[in-house]
Design a protein around this nucleic acid. Structure first.
Lengths: 209, 209, 209, 209
DNA sequence: TATGAATGAGTGTTCATTCAT
DNA sequence: CATGAATGAACACTCATTCAT
């Protein structure tokens, strides 16, 4: 169900090995610091084969990133929102909790691809231009709907929805990136998630009674 | 006073030009995607001169990053805290506001170096290992003191100080990085800062009366 | 059987050409004065191919020297001693004559590699350290045995065997080096060999009767 | 009296230092493996100064080699033969002994220049072509006269003088080169010299009585 | 499909040499 | 006399890519 980014239709065993190795090396050292000869060697494959299948090194990168980006990621999103939202009784906190758990699980299982995506979006201007708008639109759209729903229920402050999304995304994104990309953790504890949720919901100011 | 990372003691005009050009190109395309020959060409300098002065390409990168990192950055920090804190009457909100304005101004003026630093910390494993602990320690230490002070004044919730810092840093860092590195803005509006502050202080949950 | 230093197992035609050209140029101008681009050009090969096969320029040198040194040279030695010694009746003079003819033939056929070896042993400190002890041990060991045999037969003076070897090696070595390396002759005449043998055996002092 | 190769007429202190350092480095690693920048650094001098004084690197090498070669060496030779020969009563053995002691002392004191000369004569085709004939002529001429004198006295075998010289030079040269250049000894013992002399005079064949 | 020899443009780096000061 | 910044050609080496097998 998850981590399916690696397998498309008909891939030979060697082709599989190439993609796996490329993902691992791109994640470890970055696309620009990984040579096709190293990929070939570690994949146990002739260097020519990479070019038979993918034409260019850049295309190999896209073949790694794009499926994850254009199919797995939105599919997953669909799932989450579909999974969580129907429960009408749920609070926004419950939603956040479910979302975070789902995402964290997903990102943990696709950590290497995620690392490649983030590193290259930051490092590679043309990939950034291509992917960032897509990412922003997709995610933002879903968030807006959900937040407006909860605002209608009176659970959230009367801040404009766009502002909430605009503040929420860097916080959630920063949290996940700092954990999975900057510090390469394997596990995010339940308590961390709870603290984050409480922070997002209530801030840090002491309320007067 | 600011943007002093570029000028050290005795630098010839050409040496200046090399560093400036290197910073610009590293910021635009990343260290790994920038060739020394391109730096030389755009700096109007013989390629050999780069190596006369910096020995290796990697050392040129370090000569760009390290002064910013090890001197300018903590110096600035010192300044902010010194500037803001004495005013005992100030609230934590005032402190945050002053800090953000100061940082935003500083990062705007050093935007390119900042972009280089962040890109390479994410992309270059060995630089990350070298700089991240240093960064974390320096920044974290100052924040802890300040937060504890305001906690003592009863302005902040009774969350453990470490937890507050741990939540605050990705939020502030994520905000600045997403603005200056991912989206390459020139200006951050007053209102954005105010929204961020209110978010940090009060979260998004509607308070019951 | 001889000059086999050039051909190892599976070498492509171009690889052959690289080694041949490298040997020739190293012999003519020395390793340090020969550029890989010149080798490539004269071998009719892309420069990159040299590094595909040999990794570094230094490794190309070693690939030229070491097989000659560690296999051909001792193999030959084996042969000579095996060929000459069984004939119990042979005198030491006969042995010397056979040895010299064999060596001269061998060195003539491998003249260029020999020139490379000698030039680099003299010029390249690290190669000297690596090869000289090996050379000394191998050669010296065989000589000692042979000389002791002939001493036992009463053909040679009662000088300590080590001293004889220690005097004989520079003489033989100096003779061959001065002919093949310093003066680049193609042929060493029978009469030269005879004079050398008579000199070694009898010296230059006139015997009184 | 000796080691005067280093000082010509008016040399500044820095110029002295350049030549000394060049000799040392050329001797250690060879001319081709020594960079002018290294010479300058180790001599404590600006790199430009080398070229102010010597024009090119090759000219620096010649300024080191030629005075030694064209003045010191023949001068010394003159001395030896003048010193030894007058004593009419002396035997050829005595002459050889005096010659060797004189040369060994001289080469020991000029070991580094000697190493440079020998290494470059073997490595540098154009220097070889220039110096070798000169060397051969000068040395050979003096030897011939001496040997003929001793032959006239009946001390030496009736081998043609040219043959004796032709055999003697590689032996003496090989002995000195193998000691001072290949093995970098500081001292040659009296006993070694004696063995060499006895070898040259009497060979190794046991004489029948 | 898969190999791996071969390419050639490009990379970081070195080095002898020049020249303004 | 002396410096050292600056040059540019050459150097060893890398790498994505091609192609005959």
């Amino acid at each position: 169900m998850i981590a399916q980014a690696k397998k498309t239709k008909k891939q030979t065993e060697k082709q599989q090995k190439i993609v796996e190795t490329a993902i691992r090396l791109f994640a470890e050292k970055g696309y620009a610091n990984t040579s096709t000869s190293e990929i070939a060697k570690q994949a146990g494959v002739a260097e020519g084969l990479i070019f038979k299948h993918y034409g260019t090194k850049e295309n190999l990168l896209r073949s790694v990133i794009l499926p994850f980006f254009k199919s797995s990621l939105p599919d997953m999103a669909e799932e989450v929102f579909a999974e969580v939202l129907p429960a009408k009784t749920t609070s926004f906190e419950e939603f956040l909790r479910a979302l975070l758990h789902n995402r964290i699980q997903f990102f943990y299982e696709n950590k290497q691809i995620l690392q490649v995506v983030i590193k290259e979006i930051i490092y590679n201007e043309s990939l950034k231009k291509e992917l960032l708008p897509y990412l922003a639109d997709t995610i933002r759209f879903r968030f807006k709907n959900t937040i407006e729903m909860f605002k209608a229920r009176g659970e959230l402050k009367d801040i404009p929805t766009d502002d909430i999304v605009y503040l929420l995304l860097p916080v959630l994104g920063g949290f996940i990136i700092s954990r999975f990309v900057i510090v390469d953790v394997d596990v995010i504890h339940e308590s961390e998630v709870e603290k984050l949720i409480e922070f997002i919901m209530g801030g840090i100011r002491k309320n007067e009674h």
